[in-house]
Amino acid sequence: MKPAPFRYADPGTLDEALAVLSAEGAGAKVLAGGQSLLPLLSMRLAAPATLVDINRVPGLDSVEVTGDGVTVGALVRHNALLRDGAAARVQPLLARATANVAHPAIRNRGTTVGSIAHADPSGEMTSVLALTDGSVTVATPDGAETVGWRDLFVGPLETSLHGPAVVTSAHFSALPPRSGTAFAEVARRKGDYAVCGAGVVVTLDEDRRVAAVRASYVSVGLTPEVHDLTDAVVGKPVDGADWSAAGALARTLVDPDSDLHASADYRRLLVGVLTERTLASAAAEAAGRAA
């Protein structure tokens, strides 16, 4: 459980970091919080030639909140985002989801952007990025570019980013008007990777009828997906909607895998249950905001 030899660089600027990444090529890995990367190194499941530690790079540790959404810098720890009241007001899913990320010790070190760049379909924040129609900003030697979530996630632990690149921030869109959210997980133990997690957004029309329902799941499928469940409940008054119909629809849309902790069927069951439960809660919140 000791890592294979690697070179270590801790550049003081983003340009320096990109220069090191360019020079080192494909064998270089960016280190931010290290909560996923370092265990992989210790178990020798990954053996990058060089670790580029970006923790000294200035300007990456802020949470910027505007009316459009929340932009989270690459060095913002999960716990900082969890406690950011302004961010939670603009997009409540951020605090609700980060509260489910592992345990406090891991949240104190792990970064939200790092978990997105890690592209683990068991991660909460990849799912939230998708559900909020988010994007990441990527610094490359050729300049900064924005990559939307659909283009970012290619497979489990795999993104579309190649060559020298540092994800400098992630942007989560604001919660639309007359909308509510909820996030829930079933995990074997508190703080474990979810057996199944669900995040939902319910939007009402001006008559307090259901206008849109979207959901995204954790540990279900190979990459984050957003499922439109509107058809199951569209036009129903918020107090009279049958959320189990949306749950039933969701079960038909997902394609979960089996692993040691849950069969695919059990995950599908949970997709239905968690969808129904989170939608009831999100709808109540949407109704409150619409009032």
Partner: peptide, 8 residues
């Protein structure tokens, strides 16, 4: 016994 087994 785990929840997935109990479900089965």
């Amino acid at each position: 016994i785990s929840p997935t087994e109990l479900y089965d």
